[in-house]
Every structure is written in structure tokens, then in C-alpha cells.
Design a protein around this nucleic acid. Sequence first.
DNA 1: GGACCAGGTGGAACGTGTTCCTATCATGCT
DNA 2: AGCATGATAGGAACACGTTCCACCTGGTCC
Lengths: 201, 201
Amino acid sequence: MSATNSLSTEDLGSTAQRDRRKRILDATYELASEGGFDAVQMRAVAEAAEVALGTLYRYFPSKIHLLVSALGRQFESAESSLVTRPVPGDTPAERVIWVLKRTSRGLQGDPHLTEALTRAFMFADASVANEIHAVGMSMTSILTHAMDPERSTEVTEDDVAIARVIGDVWLSALVAWVTGRSTAAETAAHMETAVRMLLRD
Amino acid sequence: MSATNSLSTEDLGSTAQRDRRKRILDATYELASEGGFDAVQMRAVAEAAEVALGTLYRYFPSKIHLLVSALGRQFESAESSLVTRPVPGDTPAERVIWVLKRTSRGLQGDPHLTEALTRAFMFADASVANEIHAVGMSMTSILTHAMDPERSTEVTEDDVAIARVIGDVWLSALVAWVTGRSTAAETAAHMETAVRMLLRD
DNA sequence: GGACCAGGTGGAACGTGTTCCTATCATGCT
DNA sequence: AGCATGATAGGAACACGTTCCACCTGGTCC
């Protein structure tokens, strides 16, 4: 295990360690939610999680790893709540739009958190590839599920390609929204247009 | 003019000032090209451009403004060279793909520079909206021109929407490539797929 | 020529991410 | 129990973006 990776839950032997990891991610979440990216200061996280700064860095080798890991945890819970439930809508396009809107509404409800996590995601480099990949898989899985909730057929390459493009648009829109370059409404409209272009019924 | 904006060429009265601005952007370019985002250190830029640190900050209020402005200059020159020349390809999709490939090849030829500029673009917040908007316009203009070089008809809303989606995919691909999460070939293939889905002949 | 002043210089200082070091603590082995 | 070993605490130190300040310069107006 190289030093450029975050410690995952499986790597952690003792209960105390798993607990520390959780405390750290909770503190990150809390701080991000209150004040966004800038408020997630490593010293503050360490203090709030009641661990030493060195320990924090032992668990997460950088602020970016920390935030992306927190993002990953978010996505996993979003994924499980979206994939297990029926998605309303008669066509793939409508279902995907529904999922995106629902997700966006969730994100817009906590702008600081969203800003922090999106920034981290965009700033991540190759050393965060594992964490990023996990997020990408969640995203694709959420979208392909929305496209065909019954999964009557196998997921095709085309489905994945479409999901990826939608994911790209979604990310760009998120970045534009987070950085104050477009409003929530513009973002929503743009995504809807994109989805309809990609998923003509 | 608020302090949160970069000084543009028009704001600069004297030749000496325009010259300083140019020296700064040249130095930025040079450093970015050699060592990427991290190598563009404000002290280093100031020294290379032979201006004081305070002066640098007077011209560009932050490292991000500086890099995004440098990116803007790049895009303008790309735009003028791509828009004035005939674009090969028989269909919109082929022409767009040609333009994207050409541009990508240019970017891949200078990975550090690309990394620096992409990072900056992704990290920019609302205070950089002007600079970002300029880049977005260049991008859209390049793509709509490739879609219909003769411009027999007006640019429609649909054209712009498609161009924006392609721009989004392009940006995401660029981020993935720059951060080492995908190879140049994967990036190219993904963009080609996206363009063909969006611009079915 | 002299006074004025916007813009420039040089550099100190501050905040925050990151690294590093030493002492302390917990846990398993003999 | 005594000990070895790895993890944690606590905190100093460093790097770089950013801010600030005291002073200087080169035009402009009288």
C-alpha cells in the first residue's frame, strides 16, 4: 500500500481505527457543509475529529484525498438510495432527468458542501485515481440504472458511453454552478437539453 | 473596475504597462510549460517577468486569474487560426472531430502547460467569470464554425447547445487526461463517440 | 524648476497545506 | 511482568499564495 492512497475501511484493523476514520470524515463533512472548501482546514479537521495532525495525514495523504473520500461516501449512499428505489418516468430521458434533478436538488441544499467536494474532485490528480474511479462508477451505475431500471438487457457499450457523456455534462454544470458562473436553473436547463439530445426516445 | 478583475490590455495606458503585462503572461506561459501548475509560482513569475510581486498582483489579482488569462490568450490564437482556415471533413461530425483532434494534439504536445491551464480553469471561482466567459465564447465559436464553416444558416440555439455539450465533454476529458486518469487515446475515443452521438449526420 | 501622485520596487509578514521529529501510548509476544 | 513495535499526540518548521507597508520614480501640471 503506497503512501499516496487513502486508508480505506478494509485497511483498518481495529475498531478504534475505523472509528477514527469515521470521525475524520464526519468532521470533514461538517466543516465543508458549514464553510465550503476553504473551511476544511487540515488543522481544524484534526481538532474536530480529535486526532493529531500527523494522524490525519496518515489516514488521508492530502486535503484532496480527504475531500474526495468524503465525496465517495456521499455518492455511495446516493447510489444505494437511487438504485434500490423505482425511478419515475416513462422514457429513459425522463428518468435520467428525474435522477439528475433529484440529485441536484440535494446538492443545492448544501451548497458549501457541494462546492468543497466539487472543487476537490476537479483538483484531484493521478494520486487520487482510485477514489475518483469509485465516484465515476457510482455515477455511471446511477445513470444506467435510470436509463433502464428493469435492466431487461445487458448494459451496452453505448449505454455506458451515453452515461459518461451525461456525467461529463453534469460535472461541467456542477463546476459552473459551484463557481458561481451559472445559476441552478441554467444548470438544470442545460442538463435537460443535453439528456434529451442524447436519449431521443 | 473592481479589484477582483485582471487588468486587460485596454485598461493599460502606457506602452510600458502593456509591455509589463505581456512579459508577465510570457513568463507564466514559460513556467507553466516547463513545470505545470505547481511551477507557476507567483514569486517566480514576478522574477522572470522582472516586476515586483506587488505589481504582479496589481495586474492579476490571483494565480488563477493569471493562468486563466494566459489560457484565454491561447484560445484566442487557436480560435483565429481555426476559424479563418477551411476545416476538412464532409460532415459536421467529422469537421468537429478534426478540430478537436487538432486542438488536442496541440495540447498534448505541451502537457505541463495544459495541466496548468486546465487546473486553473477548473479551480476558478466567480471572480474569474469574465476571463472564463471569454474562453467559453472562443470554444463555442470554434465548434459552431466547425459544424458549419460556410455558415449558410444562422447559428441556432440547438447548435449552441450542442457546442456547449461538446465543450463540456472536452473539458471533462481534458481534466481526466491532465490528472492522469485517462490516456490521450481514451480521451480522443471518448470525444469522438460523444460527437457522433450528438451530431448524427 | 518644483510639487504632486499613480504606479512601481523590495521585502516583511501571515495563513494554511504539508512534512518531520520526539515522546507517549497500546497491543501482542515471551 | 517486561519488552518490542507500530500508531498517535503534540507541535515546530517549511513552502507558497497573498497582503501590506515604506519608499522610490517618472510623468504632469503650475
